[in-house]
C-alpha cells in the first residue's frame, strides 16, 4: 500500500486453538486495501459458545475496514447494517425451522457473538480505536510499547467479555474509544485476547514484526505447552508506518 511517500506495511499471524482445525478457527483480521487514507484495520474473536461465530467475526472485521467515518456514534447504525446482511446470508444457507436438530434451533435463536477491535489511522498523524470486548491494541515506538488499550494488565482478561451480537434484538454494548498520534516508523499490533494477555505478561510485541510465520507458530505452541499462553485461537495483525523506498 502506498500513500505518497509513506507506506503502511501489514501482516497477519494466526494459529487456531490447539486441537482445532483451520476451519474451526474463529478469530478474524482484516486491513483496508483502498490505497487511500485513512487506513483501517480490525481484529475480532468469535465466541466459542455461539454458532457461526467465525462468519460473524469475518463480517465484522470487513465491515470495519470498509466503513467510512466509523466511530462510536455511528457504530449502532453500522452494526444494524452488518446484522441485516449477516441474517440474510444465513437465512439462505440454513435448513428451515422445524428441520433442524433441537440444539441447532436453540442456537440459531441465540445468534452469533464476537469481540471486535477497530483502528483507523489518518494521514494527519492522528489515530482512533474502538473496542467491544477484550481484543487489544499495542502502539509501538522504537519497538517499545507506548500504549496498550483497552487493557494494560494481563490479569484483566476473563471468559465473559462484552460481545457484539449478530441479532439486532440483542442489546449491543457501547464501544470504548481511544485516540492518539503516530510518528513515522511507529507500529501498531492488534491482537485477540489470548495473545494480548501473553504480550502484557512480559512478551515483546516488536518481535511479531520480524518473526517468520513458522517461528510464530512454534513460539505459540511452546508457550501453550508451558501454560504461559492460554490455548485459544491466537491472532496478531501488525502495521508499521514507514517511508517508501
Amino acid at each position: 500500500m502506498k500513500h505518497g511517500d509513506i507506506v503502511a506495511k501489514e501482516r497477519i499471524l494466526w494459529l487456531p486453538k490447539g486441537d482445532h482445525t483451520a476451519e474451526e478457527y474463529e478469530d478474524a483480521a482484516f486491513v483496508s486495501e483502498t490505497g487511500t487514507w485513512p487506513l483501517r484495520a480490525a481484529v475480532a474473536d468469535g465466541a466459542t459458545e455461539s454458532v457461526f461465530a467465525r462468519d460473524w467475526a469475518n463480517r465484522l472485521v470487513r465491515g470495519v475496514a470498509q466503513s467510512e467515518g466509523l466511530n462510536a456514534d455511528s457504530f449502532p447504525q453500522q452494526l444494524r447494517d452488518w446484522q441485516n446482511a449477516f441474517l440474510q446470508q444465513h437465512q439462505q444457507q440454513q435448513p428451515r425451522e422445524g428441520e433442524r436438530a433441537w440444539y441447532a434451533e436453540r442456537k440459531a435463536e441465540e445468534g452469533a457473538f464476537a469481540t471486535l477491535l477497530g483502528l483507523t489511522v489518518h494521514r494527519d498523524r492522528s489515530w482512533q480505536a474502538f473496542s467491544v470486548g477484550d481484543c487489544c491494541l499495542f502502539h509501538l515506538r522504537d519497538n517499545d510499547v507506548i500504549a496498550a488499550w483497552p487493557f494494560d494488565d494481563a490479569e484483566a482478561f476473563d471468559d465473559r467479555p462484552a460481545l457484539v451480537p449478530s441479532l439486532s434484538e440483542r442489546d449491543a454494548p457501547s464501544p470504548k474509544t481511544h485516540s492518539g498520534e503516530w510518528k513515522l516508523h511507529d507500529a501498531f499490533v492488534l491482537t485477540t485476547d489470548a495473545l494480548a494477555a501473553w504480550l502484557l505478561d512480559g512478551g515483546t510485541p516488536a518481535d511479531l514484526f520480524s518473526l517468520p510465520p513458522d517461528t510464530f507458530q512454534e513460539g505459540v505452541e511452546a508457550a501453550r505447552e508451558e501454560g504461559a499462553l492460554r490455548d485459544d485461537d491466537t491472532t496478531a495483525l501488525t502495521l508499521r508506518i514507514k517511508r517508501s523506498r
Binding site: 474473536d45 459458545e49 441465540e110 465473559r160 451480537p165 485459544d232
Partner: peptide, 10 residues
C-alpha cells in the same frame, strides 16, 4: 467449567 468465550446471556 469454562470451555471458551461465552456470551453472558447463554
Amino acid at each position: 467449567l469454562e470451555i471458551g468465550t461465552r456470551p453472558s446471556n447463554l
